[in-house]
Design a protein around this nucleic acid. Structure first.
Lengths: 350, 350
DNA sequence: AGTGTGGTTGCATACCTATGCAAATTTTGA
DNA sequence: TCAAAATTTGCATAGGTATGCAACCACACT
């Protein structure tokens, strides 16, 4: 604690400019009542002294920190989330909100994290790939801090959520595979305790059940390696699947590599592979992955819009929004009659 | 602006507990002089009211925000950086520093961004994959805000930097390839204006010049697709290279795919490929990439350590540290005599 | 000239907490 | 038991800004 930051204050600027501290404040407050002349004097003095308003002091008095908290998990394990973080952060930056970031491990308990955000009186909180206890939701509500969930949903808690329609996504893939003639499609789960994986699985098996097909499955823990090994295991079983639907793209890529290099089979001639997310890698020529595209841009826009809007109108209602994904048809899965590679199929078209 | 946050203040807690506001403050200030009995009364009252100290007000008076700014670029284009961001954020979290995040486009001008951090009186700033104008460096110094650069270095500016030894990394790769008998190794640059790419290239061509070999090169713009196309272009030229050293792993993977699927050649029999970073994908069986591993953990630790330490001792000197990377020998490049796949070669061993 | 009008300005205060200092209390030691 | 030492407590103030209010000013209009 040596050395001294001697910040320049509005008082010092006021003295140099020969005006009151109020005038300095008003100069830096858009829309405040200030004449062009004094404004000029203040700006001149501020420039000379290298003055910059103290956002901390401002927050204290306006009760608006202009900071939002972002809580995110899975940044390293799934390339989908860096994209999300990037887009979210930019969106908030553009709207004049600073971002206070917390990275948590998969579904780590947020009850230790949120208080750290609330301490700083963030104006709002956006939670991605993690979920919220109802006590914490109540706490945020009590403090008047709106919360928006991205890709998770909640029942009772007073919070908005914007979510890709994972159930319908799973259904689309199942229909697509069965229509293409597959009789033994398997599901490769991410982890048993994330709603995204669970919902994709449920939709998938719902349709298989309707078509009278058995529910094959294994777990890949959302990782390349986990999927690689699980796939080898599946393919070496007595009755191997003829198609694999993976809970995300990274696992689909792991499955694909396992089928080709590990098991020495061809994709999609011997086995079809379908993923979920549509990360940039999915389009790479060596994978050319058929997958469900999450409508990221739309989801981001809606989330940010909702949070900002509720920050400005604290009485506004929460939104609950399921956004459908599109099936992007590439080369890693056999095609049903009448569908060509390169198609993008939206919900209801199949 | 409707609805009211009526935050609970230390004053209200004090009244309920029948003590002074000072007592409340001291209860929440580690090491402050407070008896167990009053402490208990205060905590009880605080619990009843749902009180939580206001970090904003605290920052105002202590002149310590306990926030650090992280500025980062390339989060989406290079999987190396999400890893870095993740590790950095966790490290700061563990040390009780909140993270204020700014994501910028590649080498966007930071002169617009940093003032936004300084407004909030962050205790320190860490800059990754972007660089700092000397005016801004001076500004930060004037305000007593230490700055640390991660993977960039600066000459005159008063800032610490921790950087992978890119020059030496380039030299290692060149020696390795030439020793393996390559006569026409090419360099695939990231972008012309980032020091990482420039230094890797310089080290690479230094050694080639010493060995009397010509400097082949092209540019891949740090992306998979850019590398894919540039590689095809190289391989279709009159005198194609017999090895390609790429400025990062993502490009190396693009090059690899281009050589195999695009040009129909074998790796490493026809062409060797070497990358830089050692992202997780590099170890995937289908790529099995020989690459230079950046000592991420060490770099992270050093950076965070330096910044925190300089926050606590503002007069402390800045550090300038080049950390050597290791050559991780896998299967994408032909081997020199006496070296087997699976080796990790540190600087000086070749 | 007088009155009214709209725009500026400064004063004083509030935001919420931490902390130096002196007073008050408890603990220690003989 | 009493004085001295050690600990705890409350008072008052500071930190840097925004803003309601009343005073002020310039100007136009009658």
């Amino acid at each position: 604690m040596s050395g001294k930051k001697q910040g320049v204050t509005s008082m010092q600027v006021a003295r140099l400019a020969g005006v009151s501290q109020s005038a300095v404040s008003r100069t830096f407050t858009p829309g405040a009542s200030i004449s062009a002349k004094t404004r000029r004097k203040v700006l001149e003095a501020a420039r000379k002294l290298g003055y910059q308003p103290n956002a901390i002091a401002r927050s204290l008095i306006t009760k608006r920190s202009n900071m939002v908290g972002i809580v995110i998990a899975n940044v390293t394990t799934n390339p989908f989330y860096p994209e999300v973080l990037d887009a979210l952060t930019r969106a908030f930056q553009e709207r004049g909100q600073r971002v206070m970031l917390f990275i948590v491990t998969r579904d780590q308990n947020l009850d230790d994290i949120l208080p750290q955000l609330l301490e700083y009186r963030v104006d709002g909180i956006l939670i991605t790939a993690a979920t919220l206890s109802s006590e914490m939701a109540r706490e945020c509500e009590r403090l008047g801090v709106p919360v928006t969930l991205f890709n998770r949903y909640v029942r009772e808690a007073k919070a908005s959520w914007i979510c890709c329609d994972n159930l319908e996504g799973g259904r689309m893939v199942a229909s697509f595979l069965v229509d293409a003639g597959h009789r033994r499609p398997a599901f490769l789960a991410g982890s048993e305790d994330t709603s995204t994986s669970v919902d994709r699985e449920r939709g998938f098996f719902e349709v298989l059940a309707e078509r009278g097909l058995p529910p094959l499955r294994d777990v890949g823990n959302y990782t390349y390696r986990g999927a690689y090994e699980a796939t080898l295991c599946l393919m070496n079983s007595d009755a191997p699947p003829d198609a694999i639907f993976c809970a995300n793209d990274i696992m689909a890529i792991g499955a694909l590599d396992a089928i080709r290099s590990g098991a020495g089979l061809r994709v999609p001639e011997d086995v079809s592979v379908v993923g979920f997310d549509d990360i940039p890698m999915a389009a790479w020529p060596s994978y050319n992955l058929t997958t469900v595209r999450q409508p990221v841009q739309k989801m981001i826009e809606d989330s940010v819009e909702d949070l900002i809007s509720r920050i400005n109108h604290l009485d506004q209602d929460c939104v609950s929004r399921m956004i459908p994904g599109d099936l992007v048809v590439r080369g890693s899965a056999r095609l049903p009659q009448g569908i060509s590679s390169g198609w993008v199929i939206s919900r209801g078209e199949v």
